[in-house]
Design a binder for these strands. Structure first.
Lengths: 361, 361
DNA sequence: TTGAAAGCGCTAACAT
DNA sequence: ATGTTAGCGCTTTCAA
């Protein structure tokens, strides 16, 4: 016996067949006499035997591995705060169930190449992290029969993909409601990355609520961002030099809100005294830096956790109808949104509101 | 043929042997007649054949997968900024070489369980992300013969592990030199997490340079932190209520420096006018928030990239002597460290210094 | 209570 | 230029 010990080595040492060894090592020891069980167990222990998972996967036709696929668009994890939290949730669910994770980051748009990396027998299912519009990953059903769950992108039904995401629409609606309720009538908006579904959903909710309140959306106050904080700063630059200014600005995410605030500070425009600013996501660093940003908090960890759970359910039951699960966001009122002159008498929507400190409104 | 097409299905359709099919599909088509090659290629294409990587791994005895192992201590990726950058570098190197990544997060300290997850034939080698003191991973050589590279922890030689890390000692030394050169004599220090090697190395360098300049280190100004920003804020609270204060404080990382600055703002202690603060790491969010933190910048992406390269080299050549690679850090002078009363005439060390904007001093 | 045998899908000597 | 054959290490009927 050279190299790593195999099942056969253990069997030889225990003086029994490979089948017996395999069965006992898999926990089916009730089939065997105590003596046999002991011999096998100690032989395995003495040799330091560890089952080869590749061989096992081949024989069992399942790998106990799930793929986490990052869209080529944001394959760089670094600035993708979203992915970290989700990944943590996924890991938390999978680890105790003895599933492993394979990180897959296709850097090409060639479907053949993409799918030979993904659906090649090495995973039992996949979680797609925030696939963007036009992503080859959205054609999943066309190329693969593997179970799959998309997170971070609420996709149109026709993609037939299972999804877990936060309810961007409801959350942005409640944020907008709140801002309006603070008396703001002139409200600007910084849009997210145009290839992200969430960017459109958040913008749409903003516009809808504005319309519901009979408030006009002035297009010169709606600026394009890309979810990066630099783009928030840039948009602030564009906005704040206009002759007429809104009294409040909603940014489609916190990153951009941070950039916006930063620019305000540079320009010495006090927030919220001169202008109110709201974000969306409640990112760690904005909290950490004491920005006191009014925003929407949502549980990305939970998104990952539930996605993993949904995926494993599909894998284990063979259930394949696409499901969609939307988690609610929570408005967190801090200090970057102030009352405007007159308080409007708009009823607040049904969303939960949290003031910093935990008390419920 | 039911299920996914296999090599055998392709062979049948092309009317040739499995070997021929395998060879051609692996690119050894020069061995065959053009006609044969075409038949195989089109058969494969028509069937939508994709090689099963599990079977391939078993036969080849290599998996083209490397494990990225997160120490149980910081298995939560979320707040581990370090891991993201490194992971990006690893991905960048591996992806074009057709290696995949398996994320492994052992949540137990039981060696048997840990190693049956890691060294079970599913990876060709591993990268350990910042293993902490006492981590079971450090016993690597004792349990596994797989090639391995540790990053983010400069370990004592006796662990016999290949390593890529930044040169904590030199970088902290140059930062300390700089602070002293600004005229500071009374300097405090916020220590990093006691289980991290880097925390000790950074502290040691600080103390050494202080000693070299004949400056006393006052222990009531040396506070324990844990690399988290909250711990920086806490330490600031402890420090700033003392009767005598240092004129400058060096934090063992930026996260803590951010917390420290935050606390200073709360207490309305102006930085750097009342006290100077320096960090270490040059994290994205500190930059993004316009904190103007004087710090050490270093290239974590590059650490990951080089670690992957080193690992692949070991895998491919069988070279197994442990190597250590230390990357230099760069002092970035921003605005949180001001001149103290009298300028000392201390010569600056050989480290590179960068003033914001890119000009070299 | 135990074992023989037939794969899982692919690779790689070694023929021919 | 192409095919035969013997695995890789394990699981799993099925038989004894």
């Amino acid at each position: 016996m050279r190299g790593k010990p195999t099942l056969r080595d253990v069997a030889e040492r225990a003086g029994c067949s490979i089948t017996t060894t395999s069965n006992i090592l898999q926990g089916r020891s009730h089939l065997y006499k105590e003596d046999m069980v002991q011999r096998v167990l100690s032989a395995a222990h003495e040799l330091g035997y560890r089952p080869n998972s590749v061989a096992r996967s081949l024989a069992r036709r399942r790998t106990a591995t799930i793929g986490v696929v990052l869209d080529p668009q944001h394959a760089r994890l670094t600035h993708n705060v979203y992915a970290h939290d989700v990944l943590d949730g996924i890991l938390a669910f999978l680890e105790p169930r003895d599933y492993d994770i394979r990180l897959i980051t296709p850097r090409t748009n060639d479907p053949a190449a993409v799918w030979r990396r993904i659906d090649n027998g090495s995973i039992d299912g996949a979680i797609l992290i925030a696939p963007v519009m036009g992503s080859p990953l959205l054609e999943w059903q066309h190329y693969s029969t593997l179970p799959v769950v998309a997170v971070g992108s609420t996709l149109p039904e026709e993609y037939l993909l299972s999804q877990v995401d936060i309810d961007n629409d409801a959350a942005m609606a409640s944020l907008t409601e709140w801002v309006i309720q603070q008396g703001h009538r002139a409200i600007g908006f910084i849009k997210g990355h145009p290839l992200h579904w969430s960017a459109h959903q958040r913008e749409r909710a903003f516009r809808r609520v504005m319309a519901q309140h009979g408030l006009p959306v002035r297009e010169e106050w709606v600026l394009q961002g890309n979810y990066g904080s630099e783009s928030g700063a840039y948009a602030a630059g564009q906005l704040l030099c206009q002759k007429e200014l809104p009294t409040a600005v909603i940014c489609a995410n916190d990153d951009m809100a941070v950039g916006f605030l930063q620019k305000c500070r540079e320009l010495e425009i006090p927030v919220p005294d001169a202008i109110s600013v709201a974000g969306f996501d409640d990112i760690y660093w904005a909290r950490q830096l004491g920005l006191q940003l009014t925003t929407i908090q949502h549980d990305r960890y939970q998104v990952g956790y539930l996605a993993a759970q949904m995926l494993l359910h599909q894998i284990e039951t063979g259930e394949s109808r696409p499901q969609r699960m939307l988690l609610p966001g929570t408005l967190v009122v801090r200090r970057t949104v102030a009352l405007a002159h007159a308080l409007a008498s708009v009823p607040i929507s049904e969303a939960t509101i949290l003031t910093e400190g935990g008390s419920r409104l």
